[in-house]
Design a protein around this nucleic acid. Sequence first.
DNA 1: AATGGCCCCAACCGCCGTTTC
DNA 2: AGAAACGGCGGTTGGGGCCAT
Length: 245
Amino acid sequence: MDYKKEENLRRGPWLEEEDERLVKFVTLLGERRWDSLARVSGLKRSGKSCRLRWMNYLNPSLKRGPMSLEEETIIFQLHAFWGNKWSKIARRLPGRTDNEVKNYYRTHFRKKLEGQNYDKIIDWSRNTGEDLLRKYKETEITWTRTTTQEHGFDKTVKESKQMNMESDKETCGGIFERESFGVMKSPYENRISDWISEISTDQSDANVLEERTSSSSENNININVGSWWFQETRDIEEFSCSLWS
DNA sequence: AATGGCCCCAACCGCCGTTTC
DNA sequence: AGAAACGGCGGTTGGGGCCAT
């Protein structure tokens, strides 16, 4: 349905009675056929508007309240991999919407990262997968320090942790170890750990392949295996879509 | 108390891929 | 097979609330 063609449609904030009516009809007809649902319900709203209101606000499975530290971590880390794929990121956060994630990122992270030249740190097109993962981990450490401060963690502990990061690499695997100062990993972080370790495994394979390619013919066209690897693994969804189930 | 600036977030827009007829 | 309808996505906007001056 085209908004411009439907001049008598209501726009702007939803009234309480509109919400009630929408909930009633979605319960009755299901989350589909939004245009016909909008018509049948008598709401003077477009199907799109109804869908959006339900998806972003009325759906009972939505989580309310501020983002947890775990959710912040996931948003940041997945954004580092996928970029502005808000719906994809939101799928990793049960009860959160793409709109919410997008707004959250814009208001909370972008400002912080602008100050840290984030866009320059992560240059998707010019780095190998290995570079990207390393640089990503570096930004993660910096970011962790800022947010943990905000959340009341002890700054000194985290900073000394960061200095040991190089030697910790093997055990850390890129995910900060909060167990070491008394906070257990959440299920969110465990899943992130799993994703990252799967990525690392794939990357090792890619690096082996890269070595073989370059040693066999040094003057060949440069095939950036690292980038290939990263391209593939940016679509983690392909092999981990059931993580939340 | 008034006001201007900023932040936050719900809602809208336009585009595009998919599904339905 | 092709047109229309539908649904999903990312970017943008506008208004309410908060805070500093």
